[in-house]
Design a protein around this nucleic acid. Structure first.
Lengths: 98, 98
DNA sequence: ATTACCTTTGACAATATTAGTCAACACATA
DNA sequence: TATGTGTTGACTAATATTGTCAAAGGTAAT
C-alpha cells in the first residue's frame, strides 16, 4: 500500500478530477498516474508537487510521506533497518547544525 | 565522505591486504574497490559483507552504516528529510510488531 | 634506471533499472 | 450504441548503475 498514492487519489476525487483529466493537466500518461495512485509505480517528487498544486492542497505532508516511502523501500527486509534509520537521523541532525 | 569506505579501508590495511589483493579475493576489479573506499562509488551490501568476512570482522556496524548512507543519499538536500526519517521509523517500528 | 609493487583515474562498454507510450480491455451509464 | 471511467500488459526509450581495461603516477629496493 502506498499512502501517498491513496492520499492523492482521495484528493483527486475530492477535487473532481477524473484520472484522465488529472493526467492531462500535469502532462503525463493516464496509465502512469493510475499505477502511481495504486502504488504499482513510484511517484517522483515532481509529480507529487504538481498534483498537490492541481488539487490546491498543501504538499508538505505528501512530500514527507513520499520520502518516507522511498526510504522504507530501500530498507525493506533489512535486519538492521531501524538501526540504520537512527544513525541516519543522528547524522542528519548533526549536519543541520553545521 | 563515506564512513563505510573509510572503515573498510582501515580494516583492509590492518588486515594487511593491498587493494589489489583484496579486490582479487572478493572477485572485483581493483578500480572499483579503490573508488568505493573513497566514496566515489557506492558499495553494494554484498561487497560489504564479503569484505567484512575477508577482514575477519563483524559486519553489523558496517551494514548499518552502509544502509544509513544509502538513506541519507536519498534525502540529501531535502527540506523535510528529518521528518521523513521520523515517519519511516514509526512505520518500521509498527511493521516489526505485526 | 629498471623492476616490482602500489593506488588512482578516466574512458568506454555492458547491464539493469526506471520511465514513458500505446492500444485494448472491462465496467458503468446516458 | 456512444461516452466516460479506470486498469492492464507489452513494448520502447531513456537513464543510471556496474564492470572492464589501459595507463598514469607514486614509492621503495636493488
Amino acid at each position: 500500500m502506498s499512502t501517498v498514492g491513496l492520499q492523492l487519489r482521495e484528493l483527486r476525487e475530492k477535487a473532481g478530477f477524473s484520472l484522465r483529466k488529472a493526467a492531462v493537466a500535469i502532462d503525463i500518461d493516464v496509465a502512469i498516474l493510475s499505477k502511481m495512485e495504486r502504488g504499482e509505480r513510484k511517484f517522483s517528487k515532481e509529480l507529487v508537487l504538481k498534483l498537490a498544486e492541481l488539487y490546491k492542497t498543501n504538499s508538505d505532508k505528501l512530500v514527507i510521506d513520499y520520502l518516507s516511502e522511498k526510504v522504507l523501500y530501500e530498507l525493506e527486509e533489512e535486519e538492521f533497518g531501524l538501526e540504520a534509520l537512527k544513525v541516519a537521523e543522528k547524522q542528519l541532525k548533526y549536519k543541520k547544525n553545521k
